[in-house]
Write a protein that binds this DNA or RNA. Structure first.
Length: 268
DNA sequence: ATGACTTTATATTAAAGA
């Protein structure tokens, strides 16, 4: 089975590219982030015509996560228990955001995740990001506690570069989000809860990234960040036979600023 | 070994992205 994750940066703008790649890449399950649309706007039919079921959650033009699967799509859950909400203005009650979607695909519990950006270290969004990650860790630890043999994949755009090797220039990002110690600790806490980065062993650095800013010729200059991850529970990690970051998909006309990341799983 | 930001919406600027 081939499982992939991709921040598509608008599914409506990227539909042709995403569908073309799905058809070519033999992907069984694709988790998408930043679909940037409401549920009613999601283009389900092209996926259906290729043999994929789709689950999506999107409330407006921001965020939005989806899972497309041709090997079953069961027990769809919008958001994880304890997922914090966001108040756009001080004093407003926090509202849920479309940043997490779970579904079971051929026995694998897949979570499509779009971790909050954080904006700047001084922004309330940064505290929201850390809270969100802590709540995700707690929820995921609970799933494994309930069933240590569970096959769980936490996949998506984590908006964190776990080490200095995961950014093209640590100096450039000094004082910015994505590289701060609290963010890195929050990511490590998920890893410590037994969710392993199963892509890195197959895509060693340095200079290996999943995201390149649209500005400043970052992609041709190979100046990127590694912020998209597939983390696997022990039972799932044992099935991984290969992994790729599909850099080709960042090339050409109207690409997303992220590349797809995928793993191949042995029968289990 | 690639291409000089991109997306969305109460739109002609603002907000968000990272």
């Amino acid at each position: 089975m081939r499982l992939a994750t991709w921040n598509v940066n608008s599914i409506r703008t990227r539909l042709d590219r995403v569908v073309d790649w799905l058809a070519r890449a033999d992907v069984d399950v694709l988790a998408m982030q930043e679909t940037k649309c409401a549920d009613s706007q999601f283009p389900t039919l092209p996926f259906f015509e290729l043999g994929y079921e789709v689950a999506h959650v999107g409330f407006n033009q921001w965020n939005g996560v989806a899972i497309a699967s041709r090997v079953g799509l069961d027990d769809v859950q919008v958001g994880f228990d304890g997922q914090p909400g966001w108040s756009a203005k001080p004093g407003l009650d926090p509202a849920p955001e479309a940043r997490a979607l779970g579904a079971t695909c051929a026995g694998v519990r897949v979570w499509s995740l779009y971790v909050p950006n954080g904006r700047t270290l001084a922004d309330p969004h940064y505290g929201y990001k850390l809270d969100w990650l802590a709540a995700l860790r707690d929820a995921a630890a609970g799933w494994l506690h309930d069933d240590p043999a569970a096959q769980i994949a936490l996949v998506g755009d984590w908006n964190i570069a776990p080490t200095d090797e995961d950014v093209w220039s640590p100096e450039f990002f000094a004082g910015a989000t994505h590289v701060s110690e609290p963010e890195r600790r929050a990511f490590q806490a998920v890893v410590d809860a037994q969710f392993t980065d199963v892509v890195r062993p197959f895509t060693p650095g340095p200079g290996v990234y999943t995201y390149w800013d649209y500005t400043q010729l970052r992609f041709p200059k190979r100046q990127g960040m590694r912020i998209d991850f597939i983390l696997a529970s022990p039972a799932l990690a044992g099935r991984v036979s290969a992994a790729q970051i599909v850099r080709e998909e960042r090339k050409g006309k109207a690409p997303s600023d992220h590349a797809p990341v995928l793993v191949d799983l042995r029968d289990g």
